[in-house]
């Protein structure tokens, strides 16, 4: 994101406001998942195990941050408070971030990064497939655009899960450990709250709970082929959508937002 740019696309909406629109609050959920995960992934730039993977992870990070920008631009228009996408990215505190906790956890080892990515990517494809049917035409357009990218993201992370799980003893051990550690963060995307219920009723968004069975079947198929075991852990981490986060998000944002906050109003 750059400070100086006019928000592409949404600054000029031809005055066409669709009757059916999701509120900024919902767009922040979509944007923040992408912005936070994109930042976590970008931490691998220059550190990934092989050059091709370094490039791959940086590419995926760029897609996610780009998608976040588009969702934030739309959120900025919809909230109508004169804030820009950059304001929303760099001048909200952790308490105002609406991402699921899964995406904010530190990147861990490569197995952890890949497993987290896979858990998110499956969810992302299924969610975007539903959102491209939204009665909110602007949201549907962004979802359809993002879906094209999410499809190759999930292929990438999924093929890595197969390689690592069905790989060496060490790669399998690390990948299973990552899955076990991440498991309690995998229910949150499928929790339904009041806002979700309103949007479902208006045909604007799917019920998160309805996405879970397909997510589980896609996941279990790959885990089985990768010789990995679905954890038996029923504890559930929750609260991200309401702004409750682990300590890790604040630390990540402190770094991500430091330049913009040190030089407010600067453009580059």
């Amino acid at each position: 994101m750059t400070g100086a740019q006019t928000p592409a696309g949404h600054a000029e909406r031809d005055g066409a406001t669709s009757a059916a629109e999701v509120p900024a609050e919902y767009l922040l959920r979509l944007a923040d998942d992408r912005l936070v995960l994109g930042n976590r992934l970008s931490e691998w730039c220059g550190h990934a195990p092989i050059l091709e993977e370094d490039i791959a992870v940086a590419n995926i990070a760029l897609d996610l941050v780009g998608q976040a920008t588009a969702f934030l631009e739309l959120a900025a228009v919809r909230e109508g408070r004169g804030r820009t996408a950059d304001d929303l990215a760099f001048f909200r505190d952790a308490r105002e971030y609406r991402n699921i906790q899964l995406v904010e956890l530190p990147r861990g080892d490569f197995a952890f990064t890949i497993m987290r990515q896979f858990l998110f990517d499956i969810y992302d494809v299924i969610l975007l497939e539903a959102l491209q049917q939204s009665a909110d035409v602007e949201l549907a357009a962004l979802a359809a655009k993002s879906l094209k990218e999410a499809r190759y993201h999930v292929r990438h992370s999924g093929e890595w899960v197969l390689k690592l799980g069905d790989g060496t003893e060490e790669s399998r051990r690390r990948t299973q450990a990552a899955l076990d550690e991440l498991w309690r963060f995998t229910s949150e995307p499928f929790l339904t709250d009041e806002l979700d219920r309103e949007l479902v009723a208006a045909g604007l968004a799917p019920d998160p709970a309805s996405l879970r069975s397909r997510w589980e079947s896609e996941l279990s198929r790959i885990l089985e082929a990768a010789t990995l075991t679905m954890p038996d852990d029923s504890s559930v981490a929750r609260g991200g959508r309401q702004g409750l986060h682990t300590e890790h998000l604040g630390l990540m944002l402190a770094e991500m937002q430091s330049v913009a906050r040190a030089h407010p109003g600067a453009s580059w």
């Binding site: 696309g9 588009a70 357009a141 359809a144």
Partner: peptide, 12 residues
């Protein structure tokens, strides 16, 4: 002149 950005249909 101005540039207007549209997202749909998505580029292919």
């Amino acid at each position: 002149a101005r540039v207007r950005t549209v997202y749909a249909p998505a580029w292919t």
